[in-house]
């Protein structure tokens, strides 16, 4: 059935177990098949290492500490760039959302610059900032700026006009209107901006490191390619995906918690 679904009674433990089983069955089958195909020599192990080999590589990367230190470096860049980018996005978004003049003045910039893929800016940043932290972080700043900007503007424009009418009739001061009506109304949308921004920040850092860095998880992939360490590449690529997933899930939890409050759902 697609569309309206009635609320069901809570799943029984057995039903839950079956659901988990279904979700895991396909990946496990794929892994087994993969192992068998490579072992049978149908695909070269140098091009597609079998899962067992990947697991061993993963373990050795972890025990040597290389994976953790690479991830930590990338993470540091993401945090720095993301903080700057989302703060700037929220600030500019607030000004554009609240003041029609600012919106008109900046709309051409936004419309022209926004469609540029962040990755396309990497060579430019390398020229301007040189190879190193500055250009890496600049890429992340841009990557997290846009989602925050657009979602902040959207959130502010979606404020219930009936609440603003109420505030007008009751002569609520502008500052109170901004901070206690407009801001809470925009929170849900801004949290979406944060979540999307952190997602793009994580993708941008990998791209930036592949081109202009000598450390971090993105650099490790390029380094492994140069040494033809296929297994390392696979492991590192998968780890990037998993970390991205983890970041998204954590922020989703935060977002749900806050947006429940501001949508007025008690709990």
């Amino acid at each position: 059935m697609i569309g309206y679904v009635k609320k069901k009674q809570k799943d029984t433990p057995l039903k839950k177990l079956i659901n988990v089983g279904i979700a895991l069955a396909v990946p496990i089958c794929v892994l087994i098949l993969w192992e068998l195909i490579v072992k049978a020599g149908l695909v070269k192990a140098t091009l597609l290492p079998p899962p067992t080999k990947l697991w061993k590589t993963f373990c050795s990367l972890v025990s040597s500490g290389k994976l953790q230190s690479g991830l930590l470096i990338s993470f540091g860049r993401v945090v720095a760039g993301f903080l700057i980018g989302s703060l700037a996005g929220a600030t500019v978004g607030f000004l554009m959302g609240l003041f029609g003049i600012v919106n008109k003045a900046l709309s051409v910039f936004v419309n022209v610059l926004r469609p540029i893929p962040t990755i396309a800016l990497i060579p430019l940043f390398i020229i301007v900032f040189g190879i190193g932290e500055k250009s890496n972080i600049a890429v992340i700043v841009v990557g997290s700026f846009w989602p925050m900007l657009l979602n902040t503007i959207g959130g502010i424009q979606n404020v219930d006009s009936k609440l603003l009418e109420l505030a007008y009739v009751y002569r609520i001061k502008s500052t109170k209107t901004v901070f206690r009506i407009i801001l809470p109304s925009a929170v849900t949308s801004m949290l979406t901006g944060l979540r999307l921004g952190l997602g793009t920040a994580w993708m941008s850092v990998v791209a930036a490191e592949m081109i202009g860095a000598s450390s971090g998880i993105g650099y490790m992939i390029m380094f492994a390619r140069e040494l033809a360490q296929t297994a390392n590449m696979y492991v590192e690529v998968l780890v990037i995906g998993l970390v991205g997933l983890a970041i998204d899930r954590i922020l989703l939890l935060v977002q749900n918690k806050f947006s429940r409050k501001f949508k007025g759902i008690a709990g």
Partner: peptide
Amino acid sequence: MIFQESRLFPW
């Protein structure tokens, strides 16, 4: 003024 709808702040 009391409006047609209650117009409360949901949060």
